[in-house]
Write a protein that binds this DNA or RNA. Structure first.
Lengths: 342, 342
DNA sequence: CTGAAAGCGCTAACAG
DNA sequence: CTGTTAGCGCTTTCAG
């Protein structure tokens, strides 16, 4: 019972360590603060003692003082699209490496970012990264004005000066058209994603404008609310009415759904009857059954840019980073029958 | 320039609101605290004024006082398996609904939980949910003893008294065996996952013991370090040497890889030549190409249990929740040729 | 039911 | 370089 020395709260504070070492608490604070004036010897002593005692500065208390929490909020929608699961994983990992922790906010289907932001202010987050969701320009500007960082990932907002990192969707779509044309396709169709996202709008614009540049006809287009596998499946069926010999899907998940529909429902083959190109290059695109030609987003580079923006002290606004894309050719667009996907 | 009233820091504190309303800061604190003694009228007035002014209590400051942050840490490994992406999504969403925020910790491939835990203590997290990763009994006990909650999701730790939520892996595996046997399969093989996880060990045990109960022979078994698509692919090839007519994979992702190998590499069909069962019931299992029979984990119920454990005040330790599983029959085990997966 | 006062654990001037 | 003194914004006794 009578545990003589201390109450059993088990967890040390800076003052405990200070008393134990016979120094002031400021000293122990400084020891953990890279650019504080403290003698190397003292710092070493403190760090070592802390390690031995198992003391670690309380981040909560620290952020109350500094008004900077070293935590960044990541706002994501559903993770059912593996691409976003990858984004989240890499982003949070890289942020960790850069010394940040990630507070995860899941947007329920109907929810919009704007309504969630006020919530975040309570957490003193240093930045919020919005992955593939939209935010209204007004709110975004309010936030950046109040000294907080907002970074869009995979979206841009033309009329607001918030930093964003994207890939070159426009060029990506053009690459798809060119590849179709080079491999002899004539009737190109497009399975669009949600109309209200910059990403999809850019892909659609790239597709259509390139087709126009080449003087090629445009077979058909289908719109899709959710960008899901099922949407891709349905889109392929709808587009089939116009007899396309190639379909560009706004993302890989939709393309996989499309391939399923082409095979199972229409009884056609890919790529012989219909060639298919997707966008993202998710791991599944490489699976033999699909072997999907796609436009690869340079995810690592994009994540790196995002982390740079988060940790950037320069306060440079209006930073819109655009990464180049690359077409990855697989069987879903090859015409030679020995390589075709059955 | 001369913005008379206040400095432009934009963000209100309890004291600001208190002064504006001519009450004490304690009052505004109480207004936001459900079980504090305050007159309903006063509370109403304060809540309304706060809403109008855009004031929200600062969570950081609050958790410094209360030593409870209303944030829970979720520790996950890779999200490349869609099942875990789903877990993360649902878990964080439900926690949000229950008033918690999720701090996400990504374990790099080599990293173990033990080394990360000390890190978490800094954040005053109310609980940590460890998803599909292992933790040593010693550390786990230390944590629970120091008043913090640790909850294992999809793992158990027999020799430690930490709460966990799992599905009935053992029975699930038995169901798979029974289903194979009932549909006339004779040479059953098992593609195991990592040996060092309770989940996989239970599945393996269930499979083998049921086979023994039935007096059936055991065709073959392959071990796999990563439980990935590629692992499943390789496992199928290795197991093929023993000519099984049915393979049970430790999870769906592996099963999908196995199906690919069976079709593309071995030139056999599913289910005619080899029937396949997976585990988890990820969305892809239902895709027509795979139409994978699988053991469904009741994810919603499991997440609900986890949230209950997090918010449970009863302090009841030694809570190991096990949810029943269910076999979902699809084409990968049907023998009738009109339904077979070509 | 309400106000005053004393912290939570840390950082940030300010002296020495 | 080091110690002292105030807070960060909120909660929580303790009086009244």
């Amino acid at each position: 019972m009578a545990n003589g020395s201390k109450d059993p709260k088990q967890i040390l504070t800076a003052r405990d360590v200070a008393q134990l070492m016979g120094v002031s608490t400021s000293m122990i604070s400084r020891a953990f603060n890279p650019d504080a004036s403290i003698s190397p010897a003292m710092r070493k002593r403190i760090i070592e003692a802390s390690a031995a005692l198992g003391y670690r500065p309380n981040v909560i208390a620290r952020s109350l003082s500094t008004r900077s929490s070293k935590i960044v909020a990541i706002i994501v929608g559903t993770l059912e699209n593996p691409f976003y699961a990858q984004v989240l994983e890499k982003l949070s990992r890289e942020l960790q490496l850069a010394g940040y922790q990630s507070l995860l906010f899941n947007l329920a289907p109907g929810q919009d970012v704007d309504s969630q932001l006020p919530f975040l202010v309570q957490y003193n987050v240093d930045a919020v990264v919005i992955v593939s969701a939209s935010i209204s320009a007004g709110i975004a500007n309010d936030w950046t004005r109040s000294g907080r960082k907002v970074i869009l990932f995979n979206r841009t907002l033309p009329d607001a000066s918030i930093p964003s990192v994207c890939c070159d969707n426009f060029t990506g779509a053009k690459l798809a058209v060119d590849h179709f044309v080079q491999t002899g396709r004539r009737r190109l169709a497009f399975a669009a994603g949600r109309r209200d996202t910059s990403t999809n709008a850019e892909r659609e614009l790239g597709f259509i404008s390139r087709l126009a540049e080449l003087g090629k006809p445009f077979a058909a287009k289908a719109d899709n609310p959710h960008c899901s596998f099922q949407d891709g499946y349905n889109a392929a069926l709808k587009l089939a009415a116009d007899k396309p010999d190639a379909i560009f899907f706004a993302n890989d998940v939709m393309a996989l759904g499309g391939i399923e529909a082409i095979r199972k429902e229409l009884g056609l083959t890919v790529p012989d009857d219909i060639a298919v190109i997707g966008f993202d290059d998710i791991p599944m695109a490489a699976w033999p059954t699909y072997s999907l030609t796609t436009i690869r987003q340079p995810l690592d580079a994009m994540v790196e840019s995002a982390v740079d923006l988060v940790s950037d002290q320069s306060g440079a606004d209006e930073l819109k980073v655009v990464h180049p894309v690359q077409l990855v050719e697989r069987a879903s667009t090859k015409a030679t029958s020995d390589e075709k996907v059955p």
